[in-house]
């Protein structure tokens, strides 16, 4: 149980933290999505790393091979990647609409605009 033997786990934790921090700390909506992407990517590593055995081969039964790597984590993460791409695409599309509607992609500015609207109500805004 050394630092090196659990290298992939430490990296996973680091990436999770970095991603979450960016989501929380940044005001720029695009940067938040980048953080979210890093956060999700960390999970891919968590799944894939244990699937690889040193010396393991693809699980095709043949003479001379006794150690196989588990392919299931890779398949799962393929699904998770698809989900992640869809989320990111949707998030970016929303940011485009937000930029059209507010003229800004800075969270503080947008909240300030909303607060202003609340103070002096105007008729409904069309989303864009």
């Amino acid at each position: 149980m050394t630092l090196a033997s659990h290298f992939s786990y430490w990296t996973t934790i680091l990436l999770l933290m970095v991603g979450l921090f960016i989501v929380i700390a940044r005001d720029n909506l695009i940067k938040k999505l980048i953080g979210l992407g890093i956060f999700q990517t960390a999970v891919y590593l968590l799944y894939i790393a244990p699937g690889k055995l040193i010396g393991g081969v693809a699980p095709i039964v043949g003479s001379g091979f006794a150690v196989y790597s588990n392919p299931l984590p890779h398949v799962l993460i393929l699904t998770a990647i698809v989900v992640g791409v869809a989320t990111l695409a949707l998030g970016l599309a929303l940011v485009v609409r937000i930029k059209e509607a507010y003229g800004s992609i800075d969270e503080d500015e947008i909240l300030a605009i909303d607060a202003q609207d609340d103070a002096s109500p105007t008729p409904d805004h069309e989303g864009g």
Binding site: L29, Q40, A80, G91, I98, A101, Y102, E126, G127
Partner: peptide, 27 residues
């Protein structure tokens, strides 16, 4: 995000962030 008010967009964006974090923690 289909809501008529433009604040619906921000609401959807915030839900997307928090929902994705929730789902990722679950994974």
């Amino acid at each position: 995000a289909m809501g008529r008010d433009r604040r619906a967009l921000m609401a959807a964006y915030q839900y997307l962030l928090m929902g994705t974090i929730g789902a990722t923690l679950y994974v």
